[in-house]
Amino acid sequence: MTNEFGLQERDAVYRAIAARRDVRRGFLPEALPSELLRRLLAAAHKAPSVGLMQPSRFIVIHDLAIRQAVHAAFLEANELALRSYTGERREQYASLKLEGILEAPQNLCILSDPQSDRGHQLGRHTMPETAIYSTVCAIQNLWLAARAEGVGVGWVSILDPARLREILHIPAEIVPVAYLCLGYVDCFGTEPELERSGWERRVPLDSVVHYDMYHEQDGSKNAEAKSA
């Protein structure tokens, strides 16, 4: 008896990780079936959480008027972000497609309740921010499950949290962590869109790996030193 998954199962996990994309375009109008949406939410709900506090909360948004209000908030925030760039970088930023709020048939706002009594503060005395980290784990669970189901997910971070609170009636003690666009898509990119557009490129793994302690030189040199 082994604790490992079978080879095909392992390959599927790594494939989902490698093929996951932040989707901003190409959403199809068909809404996700309720049972599929529930599977994705269940995957998020099963994520690891500090002290088993399960701080994540979910708002599924179908209503067009609400999505239009969120989209208007995005446009305001995006205009402010655009002003922070100059020259060619400003032109490049203006050309990017950064959301699919109205194109996607449903949106999902994922929140965290960092003040929850669940878990009895275990693990939060020294690092209270782990409540938020736990919700980020939930987001990643949902994202990978969605990719395996052929569902596109786009994370919209260009939003004023205060405005989002107002639109979605989010209580003051609850923290909005992610606003996601969900839906079937016509295709998934073979590489991240920001890499394809030339905005940024991935760095190699060795450049960020350190051993025993953090070194100021890049991780690739540290890795070479370790293997020497």
Rank of each mutant, 00 (worst) to 15 (best):
A31K: 04
D117T: 07
I66H: 06
H120S: 10
E30W: 04
R57Y: 07
G150C: 00
F5N: 11
G123P: 00
V208G: 09
D160N: 12
Y85K: 02
R89S: 14
D113Q: 07
E193V: 09
E91K: 14
L102E: 03
F58K: 03
Y179W: 12
I174Q: 03
L80N: 09
R163Y: 06
T130N: 13
A131E: 05
P128A: 00
V185M: 00
T86K: 14
S112F: 06
Y179V: 04
L52T: 08
S157G: 11
A18T: 12
V177I: 11
F27E: 01
A73M: 03
D63R: 06
L122E: 09
Q121M: 10
A16V: 04
I101D: 00
N78E: 11
E88Q: 15
G123C: 01
A18V: 10
P128K: 02
A19G: 06
H210W: 04
Q92G: 06
N222Q: 11
A223Q: 08
A145R: 01
E79S: 13
F27N: 01
G152L: 00
G189R: 15
P192G: 03
V136T: 09
H169E: 14
G123V: 02
I61Y: 05
Y93L: 05
L41I: 07
A223I: 10
L7A: 14
L32P: 00
A94K: 12
H120E: 10
E79N: 09
M1T: 13
Y211K: 07
C109A: 11
L180E: 04
E76T: 11
T135V: 05
R196H: 15
N78V: 03
C187Y: 15
A12R: 03
L102H: 04
L32D: 01
E193A: 15
L82A: 10
F27A: 03
L32N: 00
A131R: 05
